[in-house]
Design a binder for these strands. Structure first.
Lengths: 197, 197
DNA sequence: TTAGATTACGAACGTTCGTCTGCTTTTGGC
DNA sequence: GCCAAAAGCAGACGAACGTTCGTAATCTAA
Protein backbone atom coordinates (compact mmCIF):
# COMPACT_ATOMS: atom_id res chain seq x y z
CA UNK A 1 0.00 0.00 0.00
CA UNK A 2 1.65 3.13 1.23
CA UNK A 3 5.45 3.31 0.78
CA UNK A 4 7.34 1.92 3.75
CA UNK A 5 9.33 4.20 5.93
CA UNK A 6 13.01 4.02 6.76
CA UNK A 7 13.96 2.92 10.24
CA UNK A 8 14.20 6.48 11.41
CA UNK A 9 10.79 7.11 9.97
CA UNK A 10 9.29 4.11 11.73
CA UNK A 11 10.70 5.43 14.95
CA UNK A 12 9.00 8.65 13.97
CA UNK A 13 5.73 6.74 13.69
CA UNK A 14 6.03 5.86 17.33
CA UNK A 15 6.56 9.50 18.11
CA UNK A 16 3.58 10.44 15.99
CA UNK A 17 1.41 8.00 17.89
CA UNK A 18 2.62 9.34 21.22
CA UNK A 19 1.99 12.93 20.21
CA UNK A 20 -1.52 12.10 19.14
CA UNK A 21 -2.12 10.06 22.28
CA UNK A 22 -0.80 12.85 24.47
CA UNK A 23 -3.19 15.31 22.86
CA UNK A 24 -6.03 12.89 23.33
CA UNK A 25 -5.09 12.19 26.93
CA UNK A 26 -4.89 15.89 27.69
CA UNK A 27 -8.55 16.22 26.79
CA UNK A 28 -10.05 12.91 27.85
CA UNK A 29 -7.61 11.65 30.43
CA UNK A 30 -5.10 8.85 30.13
CA UNK A 31 -7.83 6.25 30.50
CA UNK A 32 -9.85 8.01 27.82
CA UNK A 33 -7.25 7.23 25.16
CA UNK A 34 -8.51 4.42 22.94
CA UNK A 35 -6.62 2.44 20.33
CA UNK A 36 -9.46 2.71 17.86
CA UNK A 37 -9.67 6.49 17.95
CA UNK A 38 -5.91 6.80 17.72
CA UNK A 39 -5.88 4.52 14.69
CA UNK A 40 -8.64 6.49 13.00
CA UNK A 41 -6.98 9.82 13.67
CA UNK A 42 -3.58 8.57 12.50
CA UNK A 43 -5.13 6.69 9.57
CA UNK A 44 -3.58 3.45 10.71
CA UNK A 45 -4.92 0.09 11.74
CA UNK A 46 -5.46 -0.62 15.40
CA UNK A 47 -2.84 -3.36 15.25
CA UNK A 48 -0.37 -0.91 13.75
CA UNK A 49 -0.89 1.44 16.64
CA UNK A 50 -0.74 -0.99 19.51
CA UNK A 51 2.04 -3.02 17.91
CA UNK A 52 4.52 -0.39 19.03
CA UNK A 53 3.66 -0.84 22.66
CA UNK A 54 2.08 -4.22 23.21
CA UNK A 55 -0.72 -3.24 25.55
CA UNK A 56 -2.73 -0.17 26.28
CA UNK A 57 -1.14 0.16 29.68
CA UNK A 58 2.32 0.22 28.11
CA UNK A 59 1.05 2.91 25.76
CA UNK A 60 -0.21 4.91 28.72
CA UNK A 61 3.16 4.65 30.41
CA UNK A 62 4.88 5.76 27.22
CA UNK A 63 2.56 8.75 26.96
CA UNK A 64 3.32 9.62 30.55
CA UNK A 65 7.02 9.35 29.81
CA UNK A 66 6.63 11.68 26.87
CA UNK A 67 4.83 14.23 29.00
CA UNK A 68 7.47 14.03 31.72
CA UNK A 69 10.22 14.49 29.14
CA UNK A 70 8.57 17.59 27.78
CA UNK A 71 8.07 18.95 31.27
CA UNK A 72 11.71 18.37 32.14
CA UNK A 73 12.88 19.98 28.91
CA UNK A 74 10.67 22.94 29.49
CA UNK A 75 10.73 23.65 33.20
CA UNK A 76 13.81 22.51 35.14
CA UNK A 77 16.02 22.70 32.05
CA UNK A 78 15.31 26.39 31.70
CA UNK A 79 16.18 26.98 35.32
CA UNK A 80 19.65 25.43 35.29
CA UNK A 81 21.13 28.81 34.45
CA UNK A 82 19.68 30.39 37.55
CA UNK A 83 21.60 30.55 40.78
CA UNK A 84 20.69 27.65 43.12
CA UNK A 85 18.19 28.58 45.79
CA UNK A 86 15.28 30.96 45.55
CA UNK A 87 16.37 32.30 42.19
CA UNK A 88 16.31 28.86 40.60
CA UNK A 89 13.06 27.98 42.33
CA UNK A 90 11.40 31.16 41.17
CA UNK A 91 12.64 30.57 37.64
CA UNK A 92 11.44 26.97 37.59
CA UNK A 93 8.01 27.69 38.99
CA UNK A 94 7.70 30.72 36.74
CA UNK A 95 8.42 28.58 33.72
CA UNK A 96 5.95 26.00 34.92
CA UNK A 97 3.25 28.61 35.27
CA UNK A 98 3.95 29.95 31.80
CA UNK A 99 3.92 26.43 30.43
CA UNK A 100 0.55 25.74 31.99
CA UNK A 101 -0.94 28.94 30.66
CA UNK A 102 0.06 28.25 27.06
CA UNK A 103 -3.14 27.40 25.20
CA UNK A 104 -4.72 26.67 28.56
CA UNK A 105 -2.68 23.50 28.67
CA UNK A 106 -2.58 23.03 32.40
CA UNK A 107 -0.38 20.35 33.85
CA UNK A 108 -0.70 16.89 32.38
CA UNK A 109 1.22 15.28 35.19
CA UNK A 110 -0.96 16.58 37.99
CA UNK A 111 -4.09 15.84 35.97
CA UNK A 112 -3.08 12.22 35.60
CA UNK A 113 -2.17 12.27 39.27
CA UNK A 114 -5.75 13.18 40.10
CA UNK A 115 -7.11 10.67 37.60
CA UNK A 116 -5.14 7.79 39.06
CA UNK A 117 -4.90 8.86 42.69
CA UNK A 118 -7.16 5.99 43.70
CA UNK A 119 -6.24 3.42 41.04
CA UNK A 120 -3.26 1.36 42.12
CA UNK A 121 -1.06 0.14 39.33
CA UNK A 122 1.96 0.97 37.19
CA UNK A 123 0.50 4.23 35.93
CA UNK A 124 -0.12 5.52 39.43
CA UNK A 125 3.35 4.41 40.45
CA UNK A 126 4.90 6.21 37.51
CA UNK A 127 3.07 9.43 38.32
CA UNK A 128 4.14 9.27 41.94
CA UNK A 129 7.72 8.58 40.89
CA UNK A 130 7.77 11.57 38.57
CA UNK A 131 6.23 13.88 41.15
CA UNK A 132 8.64 12.59 43.76
CA UNK A 133 11.58 13.50 41.55
CA UNK A 134 10.19 16.99 41.17
CA UNK A 135 9.54 17.19 44.88
CA UNK A 136 13.10 16.16 45.67
CA UNK A 137 14.37 18.81 43.29
CA UNK A 138 12.28 21.49 44.96
CA UNK A 139 13.21 20.42 48.48
CA UNK A 140 16.86 20.43 47.53
CA UNK A 141 16.69 23.98 46.26
CA UNK A 142 14.72 25.08 49.30
CA UNK A 143 17.38 23.67 51.61
CA UNK A 144 20.05 25.41 49.59
CA UNK A 145 18.18 28.67 50.01
CA UNK A 146 17.81 28.14 53.74
CA UNK A 147 21.48 27.31 54.12
CA UNK A 148 22.53 30.41 52.21
CA UNK A 149 20.21 32.60 54.24
CA UNK A 150 17.92 33.47 51.33
CA UNK A 151 15.08 31.91 53.27
CA UNK A 152 14.55 32.19 57.03
CA UNK A 153 16.41 29.67 59.10
CA UNK A 154 13.20 28.31 60.60
CA UNK A 155 11.70 27.53 57.18
CA UNK A 156 10.04 24.12 57.01
CA UNK A 157 11.01 22.85 53.53
CA UNK A 158 8.10 20.44 53.32
CA UNK A 159 5.68 23.18 54.30
CA UNK A 160 7.01 25.53 51.65
CA UNK A 161 6.98 22.77 49.03
CA UNK A 162 3.37 22.06 49.97
CA UNK A 163 2.41 25.67 49.45
CA UNK A 164 4.26 25.92 46.16
CA UNK A 165 2.42 22.81 45.04
CA UNK A 166 -0.83 24.53 45.90
CA UNK A 167 0.04 27.45 43.68
CA UNK A 168 0.63 25.13 40.75
CA UNK A 169 -2.58 23.20 41.28
CA UNK A 170 -4.66 26.33 41.71
CA UNK A 171 -3.14 27.74 38.54
CA UNK A 172 -3.91 24.62 36.58
CA UNK A 173 -7.51 24.68 37.74
CA UNK A 174 -7.92 28.37 37.02
CA UNK A 175 -6.44 27.99 33.57
CA UNK A 176 -8.16 24.84 32.39
CA UNK A 177 -11.49 24.87 34.17
CA UNK A 178 -12.19 28.58 34.49
CA UNK A 179 -10.11 29.90 31.58
CA UNK A 180 -9.07 32.66 33.96
CA UNK A 181 -6.73 35.08 32.17
CA UNK A 182 -5.52 36.42 35.51
CA UNK A 183 -4.35 33.04 36.76
CA UNK A 184 -0.68 33.58 35.96
CA UNK A 185 -0.75 37.03 37.52
CA UNK A 186 -2.11 35.68 40.77
CA UNK A 187 0.24 32.72 40.70
CA UNK A 188 3.24 34.98 40.24
CA UNK A 189 2.13 37.18 43.08
CA UNK A 190 1.90 34.23 45.44
CA UNK A 191 5.21 32.95 44.16
CA UNK A 192 6.89 36.26 44.87
CA UNK A 193 5.62 36.15 48.43
CA UNK A 194 6.71 32.57 49.02
CA UNK A 195 10.10 33.03 47.38
CA UNK A 196 11.38 36.52 48.23
CA UNK A 197 14.26 37.49 45.98
CA UNK B 1 -40.28 -12.17 41.49
CA UNK B 2 -39.11 -10.24 44.53
CA UNK B 3 -41.80 -8.37 46.44
CA UNK B 4 -42.26 -4.79 45.25
CA UNK B 5 -41.25 -1.93 47.48
CA UNK B 6 -43.42 0.86 48.75
CA UNK B 7 -42.99 4.28 47.20
CA UNK B 8 -40.64 5.42 49.93
CA UNK B 9 -38.55 2.34 49.40
CA UNK B 10 -38.34 2.88 45.67
CA UNK B 11 -37.15 6.40 46.31
CA UNK B 12 -34.59 4.77 48.57
CA UNK B 13 -33.48 2.64 45.62
CA UNK B 14 -32.53 5.80 43.78
CA UNK B 15 -30.53 6.87 46.80
CA UNK B 16 -28.89 3.49 46.95
CA UNK B 17 -27.88 3.74 43.32
CA UNK B 18 -26.48 7.22 43.84
CA UNK B 19 -24.47 6.17 46.86
CA UNK B 20 -22.97 3.28 45.00
CA UNK B 21 -22.29 5.44 41.96
CA UNK B 22 -20.66 8.09 44.11
CA UNK B 23 -18.34 5.52 45.62
CA UNK B 24 -17.51 4.20 42.18
CA UNK B 25 -16.95 7.68 40.79
CA UNK B 26 -14.66 8.57 43.66
CA UNK B 27 -12.33 5.78 42.61
CA UNK B 28 -12.68 5.68 38.84
CA UNK B 29 -13.93 9.12 38.00
CA UNK B 30 -17.39 10.17 36.93
CA UNK B 31 -16.81 8.84 33.44
CA UNK B 32 -15.59 5.58 34.89
CA UNK B 33 -19.01 4.81 36.31
CA UNK B 34 -20.72 2.16 34.20
CA UNK B 35 -24.30 1.00 34.29
CA UNK B 36 -23.30 -2.63 34.11
CA UNK B 37 -20.99 -2.53 37.10
CA UNK B 38 -23.52 -0.58 39.13
CA UNK B 39 -26.18 -3.14 38.28
CA UNK B 40 -23.93 -6.02 39.27
CA UNK B 41 -22.92 -4.40 42.53
CA UNK B 42 -26.50 -3.50 43.42
CA UNK B 43 -27.80 -6.84 42.17
CA UNK B 44 -30.18 -5.14 39.80
CA UNK B 45 -30.68 -5.18 36.07
CA UNK B 46 -29.03 -2.50 33.97
CA UNK B 47 -32.45 -1.26 32.93
CA UNK B 48 -33.50 -0.99 36.53
CA UNK B 49 -30.51 1.18 37.28
CA UNK B 50 -30.68 3.53 34.33
CA UNK B 51 -34.46 3.73 34.46
CA UNK B 52 -34.20 6.15 37.36
CA UNK B 53 -32.22 8.63 35.36
CA UNK B 54 -32.79 8.05 31.68
CA UNK B 55 -29.25 8.44 30.45
CA UNK B 56 -25.80 8.00 31.84
CA UNK B 57 -25.19 11.74 31.65
CA UNK B 58 -28.27 12.38 33.79
CA UNK B 59 -26.94 9.84 36.26
CA UNK B 60 -23.61 11.65 36.32
CA UNK B 61 -25.35 14.93 37.04
CA UNK B 62 -27.35 13.29 39.83
CA UNK B 63 -24.17 11.89 41.35
CA UNK B 64 -22.60 15.31 41.19
CA UNK B 65 -25.65 16.79 42.88
CA UNK B 66 -25.39 14.22 45.64
CA UNK B 67 -21.75 15.06 46.20
CA UNK B 68 -22.47 18.78 46.28
CA UNK B 69 -25.27 18.24 48.79
CA UNK B 70 -23.00 16.30 51.07
CA UNK B 71 -20.32 18.93 50.78
CA UNK B 72 -22.78 21.68 51.64
CA UNK B 73 -24.13 19.74 54.60
CA UNK B 74 -20.66 19.07 55.86
CA UNK B 75 -18.64 22.19 55.19
CA UNK B 76 -20.53 25.49 54.96
CA UNK B 77 -23.35 24.19 57.16
CA UNK B 78 -20.93 23.64 60.00
CA UNK B 79 -19.58 27.13 59.63
CA UNK B 80 -22.85 29.02 59.93
CA UNK B 81 -22.35 29.28 63.67
CA UNK B 82 -19.05 31.07 63.25
CA UNK B 83 -18.82 34.83 63.14
CA UNK B 84 -18.77 36.15 59.55
CA UNK B 85 -15.32 36.97 58.29
CA UNK B 86 -12.07 35.20 59.00
CA UNK B 87 -13.59 33.07 61.75
CA UNK B 88 -16.22 31.62 59.46
CA UNK B 89 -13.68 31.18 56.67
CA UNK B 90 -11.26 29.40 58.95
CA UNK B 91 -14.03 27.18 60.22
CA UNK B 92 -15.27 26.34 56.74
CA UNK B 93 -11.86 25.56 55.29
CA UNK B 94 -10.94 23.66 58.42
CA UNK B 95 -14.02 21.49 58.02
CA UNK B 96 -13.21 21.00 54.37
CA UNK B 97 -9.73 19.84 55.20
CA UNK B 98 -11.01 17.43 57.82
CA UNK B 99 -13.60 16.17 55.38
CA UNK B 100 -10.94 15.52 52.75
CA UNK B 101 -8.71 13.70 55.16
CA UNK B 102 -11.41 11.25 56.28
CA UNK B 103 -10.52 7.87 54.79
CA UNK B 104 -8.33 9.72 52.31
CA UNK B 105 -11.47 10.86 50.58
CA UNK B 106 -10.13 13.98 48.94
CA UNK B 107 -12.50 16.32 47.23
CA UNK B 108 -14.91 14.82 44.74
CA UNK B 109 -15.89 18.16 43.31
CA UNK B 110 -12.37 19.27 42.43
CA UNK B 111 -11.52 15.81 41.12
CA UNK B 112 -14.44 15.95 38.72
CA UNK B 113 -13.39 19.50 37.90
CA UNK B 114 -10.04 18.18 36.76
CA UNK B 115 -11.64 15.26 34.94
CA UNK B 116 -13.97 17.47 32.95
CA UNK B 117 -11.90 20.63 32.68
CA UNK B 118 -11.50 20.08 28.96
CA UNK B 119 -14.79 18.32 28.17
CA UNK B 120 -17.52 20.85 27.44
CA UNK B 121 -21.00 19.73 28.38
CA UNK B 122 -23.57 19.71 31.15
CA UNK B 123 -21.28 17.96 33.63
CA UNK B 124 -18.55 20.53 33.21
CA UNK B 125 -21.12 23.31 33.50
CA UNK B 126 -22.50 21.82 36.70
CA UNK B 127 -19.05 21.58 38.24
CA UNK B 128 -18.27 25.16 37.36
CA UNK B 129 -21.60 26.29 38.76
CA UNK B 130 -20.99 24.52 42.05
CA UNK B 131 -17.46 25.84 42.37
CA UNK B 132 -18.68 29.32 41.50
CA UNK B 133 -21.19 29.20 44.32
CA UNK B 134 -18.43 28.21 46.71
CA UNK B 135 -16.20 30.92 45.30
CA UNK B 136 -18.90 33.54 45.78
CA UNK B 137 -19.34 32.39 49.36
CA UNK B 138 -15.63 32.68 50.04
CA UNK B 139 -15.30 36.06 48.37
CA UNK B 140 -18.24 37.34 50.36
CA UNK B 141 -16.69 36.33 53.64
CA UNK B 142 -13.33 37.78 52.62
CA UNK B 143 -14.94 41.12 51.85
CA UNK B 144 -16.69 41.04 55.18
CA UNK B 145 -13.38 40.42 56.88
CA UNK B 146 -11.75 43.28 55.00
CA UNK B 147 -14.58 45.64 55.84
CA UNK B 148 -14.39 44.77 59.51
CA UNK B 149 -10.64 45.21 59.57
CA UNK B 150 -9.86 41.55 60.25
CA UNK B 151 -7.92 41.47 57.03
CA UNK B 152 -5.69 44.26 55.72
CA UNK B 153 -7.49 46.96 53.78
CA UNK B 154 -5.36 46.33 50.69
CA UNK B 155 -6.31 42.63 50.55
CA UNK B 156 -7.16 41.43 47.05
CA UNK B 157 -10.12 39.09 47.66
CA UNK B 158 -9.56 37.17 44.42
CA UNK B 159 -5.92 36.71 45.26
CA UNK B 160 -6.70 35.36 48.70
CA UNK B 161 -9.41 33.08 47.32
CA UNK B 162 -6.90 31.79 44.77
CA UNK B 163 -4.42 30.94 47.50
CA UNK B 164 -7.05 29.28 49.67
CA UNK B 165 -8.03 27.22 46.67
CA UNK B 166 -4.42 26.17 46.32
CA UNK B 167 -4.36 24.91 49.89
CA UNK B 168 -7.41 22.76 49.25
CA UNK B 169 -6.04 21.31 46.03
CA UNK B 170 -2.65 20.60 47.53
CA UNK B 171 -4.31 18.90 50.47
CA UNK B 172 -6.43 16.73 48.22
CA UNK B 173 -3.39 15.65 46.25
CA UNK B 174 -1.35 14.96 49.37
CA UNK B 175 -4.13 12.94 50.92
CA UNK B 176 -5.25 10.89 47.95
CA UNK B 177 -2.13 10.47 45.87
CA UNK B 178 0.59 10.48 48.49
CA UNK B 179 -1.42 9.30 51.52
CA UNK B 180 0.50 11.95 53.42
CA UNK B 181 -0.55 11.88 57.10
CA UNK B 182 0.87 15.36 57.60
CA UNK B 183 -1.30 16.92 54.91
CA UNK B 184 -3.88 18.36 57.26
CA UNK B 185 -1.20 19.73 59.55
CA UNK B 186 0.44 21.59 56.69
CA UNK B 187 -2.89 22.76 55.34
CA UNK B 188 -3.89 24.16 58.73
CA UNK B 189 -0.60 25.94 59.07
CA UNK B 190 -1.04 27.65 55.72
CA UNK B 191 -4.62 28.42 56.58
CA UNK B 192 -3.58 30.08 59.82
CA UNK B 193 -1.17 32.28 57.93
CA UNK B 194 -3.69 33.26 55.26
CA UNK B 195 -6.50 33.85 57.74
CA UNK B 196 -5.03 35.41 60.91
CA UNK B 197 -7.45 35.22 63.78
C1' DT C 1 -62.55 -2.63 42.24
C1' DT C 2 -60.52 -0.97 38.78
C1' DA C 3 -57.28 2.02 35.75
C1' DG C 4 -53.10 4.16 35.10
C1' DA C 5 -48.55 5.05 36.63
C1' DT C 6 -44.44 3.41 38.42
C1' DT C 7 -40.71 0.14 39.03
C1' DA C 8 -37.96 -3.30 37.70
C1' DC C 9 -37.02 -7.13 34.91
C1' DG C 10 -34.79 -10.14 31.03
C1' DA C 11 -33.17 -9.77 26.62
C1' DA C 12 -31.45 -7.87 22.89
C1' DC C 13 -29.80 -3.89 20.08
C1' DG C 14 -25.61 -1.79 17.64
C1' DT C 15 -21.19 0.07 18.93
C1' DT C 16 -16.78 0.20 20.77
C1' DC C 17 -13.35 -1.68 23.64
C1' DG C 18 -8.43 -4.11 23.90
C1' DT C 19 -6.21 -7.88 22.01
C1' DC C 20 -4.78 -11.41 18.89
C1' DT C 21 -3.92 -13.97 14.48
C1' DG C 22 -2.38 -14.42 9.86
C1' DC C 23 -0.49 -12.03 5.87
C1' DT C 24 1.95 -8.58 3.03
C1' DT C 25 5.35 -5.21 2.54
C1' DT C 26 9.49 -2.99 3.73
C1' DT C 27 13.97 -2.67 5.88
C1' DG C 28 18.88 -3.41 7.03
C1' DG C 29 22.86 -6.33 7.30
C1' DC C 30 25.30 -9.75 4.91
C1' DG D 1 20.65 -9.84 -4.38
C1' DC D 2 19.04 -12.43 -0.36
C1' DC D 3 16.72 -13.11 3.98
C1' DA D 4 15.51 -12.78 8.69
C1' DA D 5 13.35 -9.07 11.28
C1' DA D 6 10.31 -5.63 11.76
C1' DA D 7 6.17 -2.66 10.47
C1' DG D 8 1.81 -2.42 9.31
C1' DC D 9 -2.70 -4.12 7.60
C1' DA D 10 -7.26 -6.44 7.51
C1' DG D 11 -10.12 -8.78 10.16
C1' DA D 12 -12.03 -11.13 13.81
C1' DC D 13 -12.34 -12.36 18.81
C1' DG D 14 -15.03 -12.03 23.31
C1' DA D 15 -16.34 -8.67 26.46
C1' DA D 16 -18.32 -4.57 27.92
C1' DC D 17 -20.50 -0.32 26.74
C1' DG D 18 -25.16 2.68 26.86
C1' DT D 19 -29.64 2.22 25.37
C1' DT D 20 -34.18 0.38 24.18
C1' DC D 21 -37.53 -2.79 23.85
C1' DG D 22 -41.83 -5.65 25.77
C1' DT D 23 -43.62 -7.45 29.93
C1' DA D 24 -44.70 -8.52 34.64
C1' DA D 25 -45.41 -6.87 39.18
C1' DT D 26 -46.66 -3.28 42.27
C1' DC D 27 -48.44 1.00 43.97
C1' DT D 28 -51.62 5.02 43.89
C1' DA D 29 -55.85 7.16 43.09
C1' DA D 30 -60.43 7.26 41.61
Amino acid sequence: MSPRKSVTETAATRTRILECALASASADGLEGVTIGRLAAELEMSKAGVIGHFGTKEALQLAVLDTAVDRFVQRVPARAVGARPGTERLARAFGEWIDYMAEDGRGCFLTSVGTEFDDRPGPVRDAVIAALSRWSAYVLDEIRTAVDSGELPQDTDPDQLAFELDGVVLATAQAVRLHHDPLATTRARRTLARLLPS
